[in-house]
Design a protein around this nucleic acid. Structure first.
Lengths: 361, 361
DNA sequence: AGACGGCACTAGAGCGCTCTAGTGCATCGT
DNA sequence: ACGATGCACTAGAGCGCTCTAGTGCCGTCT
């Protein structure tokens, strides 16, 4: 039963509201005073480390709960010397990145680390985002999405372990966890070839990040199947608009039997324009996307696509980081140690936009 | 010219790299020692407050730069008593929310506040997100996206100023900054009516957030034009799939001359399905979306839509928060003070999916 | 000349926490 | 009976910073 603990009246509490309604949030000292123990012992209980008897533990937790005590993150970080903080920079506009971020939260918190997000936006550069992380004294950083300039990447890696997720860093200074895009394109090509397709076009990503690797992945997969002669590439891009433009170009210039796009957004634009131009999918042409984004799963599209598992990438990245962190528990950084690139293979999700070729060509 | 400042060799520096490559990040004390001043004075310079001569200021900044000094956010927050921190909870999957978040960064940093993001994901509840913000001792919080349960909203508001962005909180405990959806639907109806449309259908959002207000906004706007008789509503939803389903239903049951959807994603699905079914837009039917999301702007869609300005919402929210913060500079919260709802009017962006009705009726 | 105001600067006390080095006390082996 | 061991607990320093209350020192007013 809730008892008033203060000259101020206790609020009607749901289960264990703070009995002190406002003023100043309760501190460790407050809990200690009230429970009749030292600050240090209360700290032990709160952190859940051994060193207190079961009865005191109960008592302290009870009081802490009563007071609505929550440890002050800042003070805790400061005093502990280490912060148990993993910083994440990410662009806010990409669903894949959001997915990775969600995975990082999960993985980090499972390992007892906290996560602090620092967004890159139109008005907030990657540089700024990284500096914020530094200011919070993160122990490690995960860079997902818009890549920071090589210069600040270098500056960052010499201060803490860094892993870049999702794209190959343009420097060997950081660990990289990414999906081998070439493998993904290979899967797509294999799938189409097994359906009898020969004339396959890749609508590439233009100068979008990772476009080059997907393009060369396509080319070499086609070569592997002895189809270098019937492989074509048309210029595309990372959004629906580019896909729509590519569709027009394909219809004008003669359709292949199958198309693999740079990503799902591009595929959506392509599909939409195909429909407008009277091209049926997968009747006239099969289409494979890349990303397995939310849109690919929609029942009216059911896009066959290459899935890169963001949560898995995140899990691997965090694992890698913690491993490095544990290797050198003091502040020393092993800059000399070689950085690794971890590849998380993608998988192909076959849905409704691919089918056996109508007339093998 | 870079000079070695330490027994460790200086790294080749780009402009002002830390001369101490690793170990421990430099502290205020380090800068003070090196510059020959007291910690306090260096602090004054770093914070940019008056109280140091111009020459010392120069000197201190020079040394700080040389050492690569960056203030420790945590310690700073702790010591200052106030944190100048604005916490933001947001869902990571909604582009509109990302937009708001970007606006918050901009507005907050312009006012000398820092921003800490706390994401709500599948594995991380709104409750957890809010608690993280509390742990960082944010001075204020902006809640955007998936609304926290009323109970934790209450718990939060009694501790710090809170503003909910984008949707009406289900309690009057917090300030709300949002777009009056009814006005947005009104704009859409006005526009269509001025183009001669009478038979207008609203594809609603089902149980999606805010769907009710948009639906009633539609109804009352139609009534205002004396078109209650020709207004129809069909069940939709917040994604492309719902739009596609609604399109099928409309084609089967007899087309109106214009459709207003719950949001852009829904409109996209609708448009796509229309194309597949041979319905031309805006020839046979005009379509208006809601959100002005990225997809609406694509040149192959050019969707007429209602735009809610995320950055503006964010700016207003931050302004409101800071105002409250300044009103009571000490820790006391004025719970009694009444909360306000600020409405930021939307505007209609006319693009290519609306046109004059072919045969009025 | 003495008092005074203002400026540049410093000493030192915390902010809320963690952590090391204890203290006291019961239990144990010999 | 003695010290040794282990356990529950505490004192106090200190993380990196900010901030209050100073200390000198110079110029100015009477």
């Amino acid at each position: 039963m809730p008892t008033a603990v203060n000259e101020t009246d206790a609020v009607t509490s749901e289960h264990s509201e703070p009995a002190v309604p406002a003023s100043r949030p309760p501190t460790l000292q407050d809990v200690a005073d009230r429970a009749g123990f030292s600050r240090a012992l209360v700290s032990i209980v709160i952190r859940g480390v051994p060193g207190a008897s079961e009865t005191t533990r109960q008592r302290v937790l009870e009081v802490a709960d009563q007071l609505g005590y929550r440890p002050d993150g800042r003070a805790r970080l400061l005093a502990a010397g280490r912060s148990k903080l993993i910083g994440v920079t990410l662009g806010l506009d990409n669903p894949f990145h959001s997915d990775v971020a969600a995975g990082i939260y999960q993985a980090a918190e499972a390992s007892g680390y906290q996560v602090v997000l620092s967004a890159v936006t139109a008005s907030r550069t990657a540089q700024q985002a990284v500096e914020t992380l530094l200011d919070y004294r993160c122990e490690a950083a995960v860079l997902v999405g818009p890549l920071v300039p090589v210069a600040s990447l270098l500056a960052l890696t010499e201060r803490l372990p860094v892993v870049v997720v999702g794209q190959s860093a343009r420097s060997r200074a950081a660990d990289v966890v990414r999906v081998p895009a070439a493998v993904g394109l290979g899967l797509a090509v294999d799938h189409l070839v097994s359906l009898g397709h020969r004339r396959i076009t890749h609508v590439d990503g233009g100068r979008a990040p990772g476009a080059v690797e997907r393009r060369t992945g396509f080319t070499s997969a086609m070569r592997r199947h002895g189809l270098a002669g019937t492989a074509t590439i048309v210029r595309g891009g990372g959004d629906e608009e580019a896909g729509a433009a590519a569709a027009r170009e394909l219809v004008d210039g003669g359709l292949p039997t199958a198309v693999i796009t740079y990503n799902d957004a591009c595929a959506v634009g392509l599909l939409d324009m195909f429909v407008r131009l009277g091209v049926t999918v997968p009747g006239d042409v099969s289409v494979v996307g890349y990303d397995d984004s939310k849109v690919a799963r929609l029942s009216y599209l059911r896009l066959t696509t290459v899935s890169q598992d963001g949560r898995r990438l995140a899990a691997v990245a965090v694992e890698r980081l913690i491993e490095r962190l544990d290797r050198q528990p003091d502040g020393r950084r092993a800059t000399s140690e070689l950085k690794r690139e971890v590849l998380v293979p993608p998988r192909l999700v076959v849905r409704a936009t691919t089918a056996a070729v109508r007339q093998p060509g």
